[in-house]
Amino acid sequence: MSASDITQYFDYIFMAMLLCIGIAVIRLRNLFAVVMLTGAYSLISAAWFVSLDAVDVGFTEAAVGAGISTVLLLGAMLLTSREADKTSLGRHAAAAVVTIAAGAGLFYALGDMPVYGDAASPANTGVGMEYVDLTAEQIVIPNVVTAVLASYRGFDTMGEVFVVFAAGLGVALLIGLGGSKREED
């Protein structure tokens, strides 16, 4: 370990909290508790994002992940059921096999990941850092993430708007806008 940073100690705390919540979500059957724990999971992730210097991602995750997602899940839970059925042992076995296989594959590839926090890693030397220099010259606004989002990669953001529109349309077609009630059969 060559370089280090004070935020590494925060990382360990956040990891421990997220793991506990994840395992609790698997074990619990009360859907209200599961949904609220997902909100907590998102909020702790948002705190971790801030500690990892991604402040914009942090507040988007806190607003959208911990806020809107939780509200949507709560609404869906109230319209459907409050309690999940007990899962069979065979299902747990199947899940264990799949996750261990997938996890082993990912761990095998772990050695190819860039070193954590390394400024000279391939991921952190390319176009991303160029945006930092270019924003100061070309766009001249303080927040580099905003400059990249709205200007350099504006087409991505436009595509995102189309996806959100399509999703809204899909939801409206699936559950209706509540205007006209269907005739009873």
Partner: peptide, 12 residues
């Protein structure tokens, strides 16, 4: 992956 040790958030 995007974290750089000793770095600041990308805001001037």
């Amino acid at each position: 992956v995007s974290k750089v040790f000793g770095g600041a958030p990308p805001i001037f």
